[in-house]
Write a protein that binds this DNA or RNA. Structure first.
Length: 573
DNA sequence: ATAGGGTTAG
């Protein structure tokens, strides 16, 4: 015989949290709690707060519950703060926390973890991070592994110093686990992928078992390196541990191989996958886009059997733009909203502006910008500016440059492109003024670096080449290369260099651009951090003919495959 | 009852 017990508040709380994000179920239990007056119990209230935040009720309904509670404990505050974080209301979470702090209410590690998660992606997050780190140190919570890990993530996602992250990590002093190791590797993955791998090896030496999260982050770091060798090594670990059917890891591998130059390898991985999700298709589409293989991208899309999303169309549009397929691009832009119900976002508009501008339809590009339902961002304007440069549209270029400076004052791109436009136009005085303005505002142009891998060693080149131990030999070889290229018709584009220097020095400056140095050192795959300049691009085209080899350069924007004087980008990048 | 790390850049 079944004996009926009156449910306790704990039963209510457990059932409510078991509802997860299921509103229907959650609301019914809530109603029952109201009828039986269990809603006034803290445990029940706390569970309701989280339930609403996870469901479509959202932060407002959770807040109603919170406010109605006659008695709250620490968990109530924490749940509300975590709830705000989940719902993307970081500011409300911070407000509540400061109330807590001012009111002398005790907080704990869960509070801090939620607060640090909130800071990720907030405008003034870095400043808050510093302040909260002090509080965290004072209260001793910095020694708690979860708190420290959340702090590391907040710092790195807000663009704080990686070295600060590393210090926080090290101060955990022997108590680190897989999660905190993953956090620190993630912090390094984008800005110093080599170091990220060094830390990963160190982690393996400590005999800790890597999990899926760890591998995905390590593969992400591999995507930042010069060859696919590292990615493949990591993949062999992945297989050894038995994660071969993990979709996320295969997706990360597709991306890494493509970024390291091997689309073919990406495709192999993609083909071998047992099942694929939207990200898998998107990653493969992006791989084609990066390499300017527009036809392949469209063909793959026609075979796609997962639900396309916004990113799918960003990939397709950028594939069209990189392959110069204007008509196809326009058609895709149409169908994405008409047939797939996806509302174009900033990225889509930026691609479309790029596609139109590249095809020389600059006024159409400008019209599209004017028609955008949201404020165009700096990416959109720089796409327009790029096409103005290509097609000599000085007037519109000025407008775009002004907008760029407004929206992204620390970005040198607007200044540099604008001064290039003036130079090509022979308006050197105006070009110089722009440069001056840039220097006055301390907008630093990112120094151009190139990397090349020879044997097992990565060589880094900076403009001027003075850092490399074999600089004399490289410069001599470069001079020889320049001499022979000039016979082939290479004319250095002096007008691109700064105009405050003598002509012959201008020419020298051009020769020592980092990718030329890298090429002179070893003719192979070159990777660089900023966009390749017109002169280097020309240089590479002719060099590919001279040495009768394919030269591959990955710049910040895409891949350039130079062969027999032709580049895969068709001279638009 | 609440609590740290995962894949797609232009």
């Amino acid at each position: 015989m079944l004996i009926w017990h009156q449910p306790t508040e704990f039963a209510f709380a457990s059932v409510i949290s078991a509802c997860g994000g299921d509103d229907n179920c959650g609301r019914q239990v809530h109603a029952l709690a109201l009828k039986t007056s269990f809603d006034s119990c803290v445990y029940v209230g706390n569970a309701l707060i989280m339930m609403y935040c996870k469901s479509c009720g959202g932060a407002d309904e959770a807040w109603n519950v919170y406010e109605a509670m006659g008695f709250r404990n620490l968990v109530s505050w924490n749940s509300m703060i975590a709830g705000f974080q989940v719902c993307g209301c970081g500011n409300r979470a911070l407000e509540l926390f400061s109330q807590m702090h001012v009111g002398g209410i005790r907080f704990d590690r869960a509070t801090l973890v939620s607060i640090f998660s909130c800071l990720c992606g907030m405008g003034d997050g870095l400043e808050c991070c510093f302040q909260l780190q002090c509080l965290t140190i004072k209260t001793g919570f910095i020694l708690k592994i979860e708190v420290a890990t959340a702090l590391v993530k907040a710092y790195s996602s807000l663009g704080g110093e990686v070295s600060d992250c590393y210090r926080i990590f090290l101060e955990l002093d022997g108590r680190q686990d897989v999660v905190s190791w993953t956090g620190i590797i993630a912090a390094f993955a984008e800005r110093d992928p080599k170091k990220a791998l060094v830390i990963f090896r160190q982690f393996l030496r400590e005999c800790l078992a890597p999990d899926r999260h760890m591998f995905s982050i390590v593969l992400k770091a591999c995507a930042g390196l010069a060859t696919e060798r590292h990615a493949l090594t990591v993949q062999s670990h992945v297989l050894k541990v038995g994660f071969e059917d993990d979709i996320v890891l295969a997706n990360a591998l597709i991306h890494a191989c493509a970024r390291c130059g091997s689309v073919a390898l990406s495709k192999q991985v993609f083909d071998k996958m047992g099942s694929r999700d939207t990200v898998s298709w998107n990653s493969m589409l992006k791989a084609y886009a990066m390499h300017g293989q527009g036809k392949e991208a469209l063909l793959l899309f026609s075979q796609m059997d997962a639900q396309p999303d916004g990113a799918t169309f960003v990939a397709l549009l950028s594939a069209c733009s990189h392959a110069g397929m204007a008509e196809e691009g326009a058609k895709i832009f149409e169908t994405m909203s008409n047939n797939h119900g996806i509302v174009p976002q900033l990225d889509h508009y930026a691609c479309m502006v790029d596609i139109l501008g590249r095809a020389g339809q600059i006024s159409e590009a400008k019209e599209l910008i004017d028609k955008m339902p949201m404020e165009p961002d700096s990416v959109v304007w720089s796409a327009l500016l790029g096409s103005c440069r290509k097609h000599g549209e000085t007037k519109l270029a000025k407008l775009a440059a002004v907008k760029l400076k407004e929206l992204d004052p620390n970005n040198s791109l607007g200044y540099v492109l604008m001064s290039n436009i003036f130079c090509t136009d022979g308006r050197f005085n105006e070009a110089r003024l722009i440069r001056r303005e840039m220097e006055g505002k301390i907008v630093r142009k990112e120094p151009g670096l190139s990397w090349i891998e020879v044997g097992n060693q990565v060589h880094e080149f900076a403009s001027g080449g003075q850092q490399h131990p074999e600089k004399e030999a490289i410069c001599a070889r470069l001079e020889e290369l320049v001499r022979r290229l000039k016979d082939l018709g290479y004319v250095p584009q002096i007008s691109l260099a700064l105009h405050d220097i003598e002509d012959e020095h201008k020419e020298e400056q051009l020769y020592y651009h980092s990718e030329k140095l890298a090429l002179a050192f070893a003719l192979m795959n070159i990777m660089k951090n900023i966009r390749i300049c017109v002169d280097c691009h020309n240089f590479m085209k002719l060099a590919s003919e001279l040495v009768d080899m394919e030269i591959v350069v990955r710049d910040s924007n895409r891949f350039h495959h130079f062969k027999a004087k032709v580049c895969s980008c068709n001279d638009y990048w």
